[in-house]
Nucleic acid binder design. Structure first.
Lengths: 337, 337
DNA sequence: TTCGTCGTTGAAAACGTTCTTAAGAACGAT
DNA sequence: ATCGTTCTTAAGAACGTTTTCAACGACGAA
């Protein structure tokens, strides 16, 4: 077993009877004689030498850390993203620093300025709300940033987005094919990026399939959470009688399932339910939940790779990717047993 | 808006016409004249100065980072813990570095040696499996470690553990009170720390309440996952007819619910189901799941605070906390509507 | 033999911060 | 008027690395 005392290059050098520079060279670069290599290796081993991160960082400017900022560490879709990111980033030799910002853009601006302290080489940011100030702050950042989520069209920043509109189109198309006509939307807050996108997608799909765009079929939850979903669904059922509900979120959809069950409605016989994000929760729900896969895993993967590329090549052209959605059909929209 | 160019103490000092030392003093400690303070503040502001993390770390030895290592970032109970830890640690001014180790102790030993590179001030570790080597490695660590989970009795390390045995006792007691007699166990791998604890707790409870300890009532899933739970429950139902199932995990319990539904059994009328960890999944399940709250939030909170204390006072006495379990009763064990 | 070249090594300079030490100024006491 | 005391400031030494630069030896070519 190597010793546990803290050692440094100087100690290793002394023990090997060589210079500090040589030790560094042997351990990092090449260019050393066989004898030199042997002695250094042996001394380093004997002293249990491990290089000091901060000294190396100070000298090289690289931290080997990537920061990930999400609005809510508890949301299943972020969990899924985090899992993916952890793995990709880890394989590339980076550590992952997680910051849970609130949904307030000010938090994220704070984060950006603290990023300039240089504790990470880049940032993966998935903002719930986007303001002009946030965009300015991102533009002004000294470090690479990749945004997961939709940005205004004129913002030239690396980003990876989902295509909610097409995704909701898939859901509505599927529901229409099942003979549903009164298709409702349980949305999250519309002042958030995903909330706005989903509303727009819903309206477009409704129009495309010539359905009624009654305002009674649209409700807005106060957040993307289970509780908010219960309340919103209760409100929806109070004001109209949909034969299908599209939810902005799997969590909202599970809430809808529960509320429907409490109201005595059968799913899918009376009302079909579609979730969004296709998280684990969709499969675990009862009945299992048809869900629009917005590619959260793919998005996370693409974003992580994009960031790593950008860190290694700061002058690479800006990339803006759109991940195509798909529909995972399960029990909540299928009449059959 | 402050400039975005990278600045340092020397630049600020030059601009303010004072020495580097004075700038540092003004910005950190006190002891400076009003005039000095004013000029330094102004210069720092004008240059958009932000202190460099690595240089500060190199000098002070503090990274302001805490590492959290969990076996699976996706497991709901770890998600819950991570959420708690993020918040506590953040409030205390630390950043959180997340490492997802596998369930293999070797990964964790690697992690410990990389910790000695000094990228964090301490480690929160929740090992699934514990070996002598891992314990040795923890003992030999230069940095504070707090273990979340049960350790052998003779290991003198800060740790916070759950009390599975008492928890399962609560569950069995509740089930017995409901008139259940053939109480089965769907466990995770018994070579893991929680798996072993839960088996022991189950056997103790069975004995205490004078129930049959038939081996047909015990099955072991290959992991703490949904899929493994489905298979294990199917096996259980094939080999016996329990009137209640205690599961080592909420995920396993949800799987049991699903499998029971597929087999045409009613919950709780025919079979009652109890989960463990009391994660969000328990409330979202249909029927909602009675679950043993092993205090994951409390454990995470306690562990984080313990670690911070230890970092700030390395000579503090070793603390070993046990968090008391409680039972959250929901539909899956209640006959009433 | 002598000179240029190449490969290997060591000395020393950064990186940006904190903190110790000492010098200088201001001021009250003797 | 001189001396000690206290307060403010500056100079400089770390922290542990990587990397440039020069020195040195060996070696082949002329």
């Amino acid at each position: 077993m190597a010793e546990t005392k803290k050692s440094n290059l100087a100690l290793v050098a002394a023990r090997a009877g060589v210079s500090v520079a040589s030790v560094s060279r042997v351990l990092n670069g090449g260019g050393a004689s066989a004898e030199m290599t042997r002695r250094v290796r042996e001394a380093a081993e004997a002293l249990g030498y491990v290089p000091d991160t901060s000294a190396r960082t100070l000298r090289t400017g690289r931290t080997d850390q990537i920061a990930l900022a999400v609005a809510d560490v508890g949301n299943p879709v972020y969990v899924q993203m985090m899992r993916t990111v952890t793995s990709i980033v880890g394989k590339a030799g980076y550590r992952l620093v997680v910051s849970s910002t609130g949904s307030d853009p000010a938090d994220q601006i704070d984060l950006l300025s603290s990023l300039n302290r240089g504790y990470a080489d880049g940032l993966l940011l998935s903002p719930l709300r986007i303001t002009g100030e946030l965009i300015d702050a991102m533009r002004g950042s000294r470090l690479p940033i990749v945004v997961i989520g939709t940005l205004p069209a004129d913002v030239e920043l690396d980003n990876v987005r989902a295509d909610s509109a097409t995704g909701i189109g898939l859901a509505v198309e599927h529901l229409v094919a099942q003979g549903r006509r009164r298709i409702a939307l349980v949305n999250g807050p519309v002042d958030t990026v995903p909330g706005a996108a989903r509303l727009a997608g819903y309206l477009a799909a409704i129009e495309r399939f010539d359905l009624a765009a009654s305002s009674e079929l649209q409700v807005t939850a106060t957040g993307f959470t289970y509780r908010a979903g219960r309340r919103a669904t209760a409100q929806l059922l109070g004001q109209s009688s949909p034969d299908a509900i599209v939810c902005a979120n799997d969590l909202l959809a599970v809430a809808a399932l529960k509320e429907l069950a409490a109201a005595g409605a059968r799913v899918p016989a009376d009302v079909a339910v579609v979730g969004m994000d296709d998280t684990d929760a969709a499969e675990l729900a009862t009945p299992s939940l048809t869900s629009v896969d917005l590619g959260s895993t793919k998005r996370a993967k693409a974003a992580a790779k994009l960031l790593i590329r950008r860190i290694e090549d700061p002058d690479a052209p800006v990339q803006r990717l759109v991940i195509a959605p798909s529909l995972s059909v399960r029990e909540s929209t299928q009449e059959t047993a």
